[in-house]
């Protein structure tokens, strides 16, 4: 009978360690990109506010 995957967890956990740098950098880029988009949106919103007519 084949051994359950957890019995050899050490093997594939060690293999997964090679993925760590990629996951780390991708996560950082994704978070940074998300924050930049939010900051840009906030800047645009702030820039639009003074243009709105304040007297009717």
């Amino acid at each position: 009978m084949a051994a359950p995957p957890l019995a050899h967890a050490g093997h594939w956990v060690v293999n997964l360690l090679y993925l760590a740098p990629v996951v780390l950098i991708v996560t950082m880029l994704a978070v940074s990109s998300h924050r930049d988009k939010r900051a840009e949106a906030a800047e645009k919103a702030a820039a639009r506010t003074p243009d709105e007519p304040d007297s009717q």
Partner: peptide, 12 residues
Amino acid sequence: VVMISFTSLGLW
């Protein structure tokens, strides 16, 4: 990211 992926893949 591509370069880091290929490097990690190569070393693995």
